[in-house]
Nucleic acid binder design. Structure first.
Lengths: 341, 341
DNA sequence: AAGCGTCTGATAGACGCCTATCAGGAATTG
DNA sequence: CAATTCCTGATAGGCGTCTATCAGACGCTT
């Protein structure tokens, strides 16, 4: 049994290829009993249209749009780079990818950007704020027939087709367990620095972290969250203050960006070796600090994988093909000094 | 700038499409200066052949062969399953994948299997023993024009085109660091159970583990390796003996398979909570033990990813297309109770 | 019975590339 | 200069699917 072609199916069903095509692509009305015959033939021959030939024939461009936060931190920059890399790579496959930047923290502006997405696009991938106005804009997009995929940070109650990113509450729990085990038996305080609390990913991490800390490690006292707004300079000030306030601080978890600031504060305060520091996202800064030993663990999400996954999902949706769930699961990468790539 | 076709190139270079094709596929002799003109045109137009169209036109089947250990453990079983899944999925893309089982621990038999690989195959992926006889067989295969990819366990000095798998010495180091940190400050003994020491992957893990243990954690005493031969029952006996011999054992690292046996030994000995147990490969057994808390950390390599990566690499080689290195890096997955998929 | 709409068949022409063949011109040889 | 060999152009046909069009066949309405 090699590969059946559309002609084999036509013959098997006793109809013409045109009719097979009509039932396959719902091109025109086909009498139910004829359609039935065709479908039976398809099943009997285990026919699967050749995707290569189909895409060639359709001669269709796929147009996708990625919407990322503007300015922003090292991780978002690497996401943007990954998008551009893939845009180049996919160009030869007739996939056009545009990259838009906007202030995702401003719900109005993000929503306006989404509203302005033209019908030229088959799909949109967006780092989205979980806000009613944004949710509404996402739903409107979906309504207009544009496939929407949320990236990195989800908007669960919206009509987005898929979420590409890690399970952030699992990431928070993981951080907590590692923190607790690294500090096993010791008593002391653990600090938590958050980025902005408007993106859902950070909230979920925090939630997961607090949950496990409270439940599993009563020997550790979790201090109230301090906000660093994902800005390196601000984060550094916050961290310095935190260290000064709590000489008995033995653990620090940074939910957001700007880890470089914390590393600097730890080093300048001479506390780099005494405080277990866990943070997110592998960047030049954090990699260096991990090697130095200032950072103990980095929890990472692979920007390249996320972008490629988003593209695969968008293409599948455009082709109305099913996606392979387990292939699209974005994993929580844990990096120690020993396994950095 | 849409996409240039072969005709555009022909026009730009002032030659016929036939000549462009000859240059592209080295089909026949072309005068150097003509080839030069064509190549310039290609660069000027940034022409890239449409891979879809090319594959369609070639109407060529790719035939690959996977060689895995027979019988064997849960991980190898899941590898085999992944191969079969992908074989089904790739069938529609004119990729035929055969799966062979052999005793990879028997160098002669493995080599014989490799020698018997016919020229029908474009590529072979093999879980290989690092042994002169095997290396020779791999080289002979490569010589015959069959692309060889090593899977899970490498044979570095051979002429294999690529190694698909994790950096096992990094994995061993990672295990050691986690072990050391989980046991921070405590003194005691740490046991190491190896599978068979004929596959290179296990040796490398052991090496990495010992290295970091010796260097970074002088408070811990690493006991001599015990071999479990990757067999659950044998491993259990070995573990029971180890626990009996050393009441002050506080850490255990299993390099190979058969973790279920160790988990059973720990539980029956009532030591499950007292001993930090780190092992490899996420299976039904280890997943359960991780949730129970008997296993503290699982270091995993994703069988599905490995198989898909191997296929991508083999296809790229068959097409003489470059591979995207960083896309083919197999990551060391670290699973805690909190982030199991 | 004429007119209508609904369903189906047949077929041509893409899509971009590969393969093969043939013929003729250019360059080389003796 | 004739006889080869080497290069190149032109072109046909195919890979499996999609798109579009046209012509019938059929059943139904009036």
């Amino acid at each position: 049994m090699v590969k059946a072609t559309i002609e084999d199916v036509a013959e098997e069903a006793g109809v013409s290829v045109a009719t097979v095509d009509r039932v396959l692509n719902g091109r025109a009305a086909v009498r139910p009993q004829t359609a039935e015959r065709v479908e039976k033939a398809i099943r009997r021959l285990n026919y699967q249209p050749d995707r290569l030939a189909a895409r060639l024939a359709r001669a269709r461009e796929y147009r996708f749009c990625f919407i990322l936060p503007e300015g922003s931190n090292a991780f978002m920059t690497s996401l943007a780079e990954a998008v551009q890399d893939e845009a180049l790579r996919m160009a030869r496959e007739k996939v056009v990818i545009d990259l838009l930047h906007t202030d995702v923290f401003d719900a109005q502006q993000l929503a306006a950007t989404l509203d302005a997405i033209g019908p030229v696009y088959d799909g949109v991938a967006v780092v989205a704020l979980d806000h009613p106005r944004v949710r509404e804009a996402l739903n409107a997009l979906a309504e207009r027939g544009v496939t929407v995929v949320t990236l990195v940070s989800d908007v669960p109650s919206s009509r987005r087709a898929h979420y590409v990113g890690i399970d952030n509450s699992a990431a928070g729990r993981t951080a907590a367990t590692l923190m607790g085990r690294y500090l096993s038996g010791r008593r002391g305080k653990v600090g938590l620095i958050a980025g902005s609390l408007s993106l859902r990913d950070h909230i979920e991490r925090q939630f997961g972290f607090e949950q496990v800390m409270a439940h599993d490690f009563p020997n550790l006292t979790l201090l109230p969250v301090r906000e660093g707004r994902d800005d390196r300079a601000k984060v550094q000030v916050v961290a310095e203050q935190l260290l000064a306030d709590h000489p008995d601080l033995i653990g620090l978890y940074n939910v957001g960006a700007g880890s470089g600031g914390i590393a600097a504060a730890l080093e300048q305060g001479g506390r780099a070796r005494d405080v277990v520091f866990i943070t997110h996202e592998l960047t030049d800064d954090t990699r260096r600090a991990l090697i130095d030993g200032t950072i103990d663990i980095i929890i990472n999400q692979d920007a390249g994988h996320e972008v490629r996954s988003a593209i695969r999902v968008l293409m599948s949706k455009a082709d109305r093909a099913p996606i392979v769930e387990q292939m699209e699961r974005i994993r929580i990468d844990i990096y120690l000094r020993d396994n950095i790539p």
